[in-house]
Design a binder for these strands. Structure first.
Lengths: 342, 342
DNA sequence: TAGCAAGCCTGAAGCGCTTCAGGGGAGAGG
DNA sequence: CCTCTCCCCTGAAGCGCTTCAGGCTTGCTA
């Protein structure tokens, strides 16, 4: 190092005030767009701030305003469950969109294990006042987080539909409606019996999709095939069970499950879509990449994240509640569906 | 609401002090494990704190300690680029592991667009003193973030190998070594010519993998096939170019690219692996799910994230520098590779 | 010309913690 | 019995901001 490094102290509001020839209070007023500062004084202050590269210290602000300008998202999932999840990243980027506008930050915490394992994380963040609110996903029946968070008094918004009593506001997509598209599409292709392959039965969203699948089946007048549930991990084995029923069409509640079916079909010597039609859900990039590319259902999880975060900001009181009109899920037809054999 | 809600004020250190019959200073000493408090006083204080559900306010602490106990990670990638990325989630969960031990939090910011678009985000976070340090990924040649962050004086650790001058410490995996496995595996199967399919040529990691592929080719004495680069988006088209060279084996620098090759092969009527062997990289869940399941290379990005975050904590001065011995990449043989036809 | 309102700006307090200098009490040593 | 030392503990200052109650100018109006 050639130049000496005086341990560079970050400039404070006092430095700006001195340089602009005003009081610290005036600087505060100016940067916070408050009345009571003449236009040219304000200008002088802003110039001084810019020249010094000063921004109000987030910590000091948090202390005086009793607001951290951050929200928390705690994900209690194992890494593998997140890796192929079309929901997570899209949701996240939607959240970021909403936060950026309000100059809020996202505190993300990943904890291995289920919702129970996440409780201490919520407790710590809440008790230390590290965040102004929480966004809850992967809501479970009798979710233990509800009581904890309600007691803490921190604003909370649920991303998803609560199963029972819920003390918080919640936001939801229209994902269930997406089950109609595949069923109608398959019926139109001539399939007379349609099966269902969904994730763990104790997830609310899986149940909803299952019942919407049933409704659609009834509505179009085809026969109800097998309905099988499986974790991603056991998907391959479950897919075999499913195929043992010799369906001509399987509607899956995720692209990952659909791939498992495609794989199992190939093992059995069945060609997709010639012998078996398969549809996915979420329209993750997977769907387009697979061979054959999967017919899938696209749900806009980005707007969902944006709406959820927006609702939370509204609950915190720093923004207006967004008017969220969830868009309808969209069937994306690709090459994994065709007329039934024969 | 039946019970009245006195606008629940979070307890402060003064409340705890009062309840324990000591001064606020004593409470501070006790919760920070500092000497100068007798064991039973300490106990009394901790009990009082627990009963009140009190934890030191993160904001107040941040102000006095001039430390926020948070680090920043800014991802300047489009959503689609993140969705199938085997690296990101694993890296993230490694980071979380390191942070949890030190009671640090992660501030995650996703910004659309490239590294340039991220600059304002870094500037805001740094100038407001919102984080104690940054983790940098997706390092580019002449990365504009270097100058900005060096000037800000915030500790930085690079996750990846810097291309040119770099003022920060960096941490890297041994991913490049992973190129040998596929090449040797294919040579052993009898392939005499092996092609390469990698991501954008201006990524450092792609270049390194390319040159390691070359080295491996030379070492095992097979012929060097085509080397093609493509973005994920143009992967399908590029795969056609690649296949026009009529290779019997393609080594890919990612699973996504490998899937593109598999898809293009199928279009051409080539069977994988009978007519064409393909290997992926990263061993994302994709690899196991694909049909046929992909032979791929597993790199431990979790330990990488943990090491990078650990190094950052060390740079900040709140932990010892971890002793990171990156594990060797591991070839995972599945069904996408076989002896060449004929 | 006096009186007043409006506009602009300042000083000081306070947010909840940490830290530091020092006070007081108990025990040990002379 | 007095002094010295060590151990516990406290009071007060200060971190960098926001906010609130005025004070000082202006420029009007009567």
């Amino acid at each position: 190092m050639t130049s000496s490094d005086p341990p560079r102290r970050r400039p404070t509001i006092a430095d700006v005030a001195r340089r602009a020839g005003v009081s610290a209070a005036a600087v505060s007023f100016a940067v916070n767009d408050r009345p009571g500062v003449s236009p040219d004084t304000r200008e002088r202050i802003l110039v001084a701030a810019r020249e010094l590269g000063w921004r109000p210290s987030a910590s000091a602000r948090a202390l005086t305003e009793a607001r951290t300008r951050a929200i928390g998202l705690v994900l209690a999932r194992d890494t593998e469950q997140l890796e192929l999840d079309a929901f997570f990243i899209r949701f996240l980027s939607g959240i970021e969109r909403a936060l950026t506008d309000a100059d809020y930050a996202l505190l993300l915490q990943l904890v291995p294990g289920g919702a129970g394992a996440a409780l201490p994380a919520y407790e710590r963040l809440a008790a230390a006042g590290r965040v102004d609110g929480f966004l809850l996903t992967d809501v479970e029946l009798d979710d233990p987080r509800f009581a904890l968070l309600e007691a803490s008094g921190v604003p909370v918004v649920l991303a998803g539909r609560p199963v029972g009593e819920c003390p918080f506001t919640w936001v939801e997509t229209r994902h269930e409606e997406g089950m109609r598209g595949p069923v109608e599409h398959l019926a139109a292709l001539g399939h007379e019996r349609v099966s269902f392959f969904g994730g763990r039965a104790d997830y609310e969203h899986v149940q909803v999709r299952l019942s919407r699948w049933r409704e659609a089946i009834d509505a179009v007048g085809v026969e109800e095939g097998l309905a099988v549930h499986a974790d991603d991990r056991e998907a391959a084995a479950a897919a075999e069970v499913l195929l043992a029923g010799e369906p001509t069409a399987v509607v899956c509640a995720s692209d990952v499950l659909a791939l498992a079916v495609v794989g199992a079909a190939r093992e059995r010597g069945l060609a997709v879509p010639a012998d078996l039609s398969v549809t996915g859900f979420d329209d993750s990039p997977l769907a387009a990449l697979a061979s054959p590319p999967l017919t899938s259902v696209r749900v806009d999880y980005g707007e969902f994240g944006e709406a959820a975060a927006g609702a939370l900001l509204a609950a915190i009181g720093v923004a207006d509640a967004p008017d969220y009109q969830p868009s309808a899920p969209e069937l994306v037809v690709r090459a994994s569906t065709a007329a039934p054999p024969g």
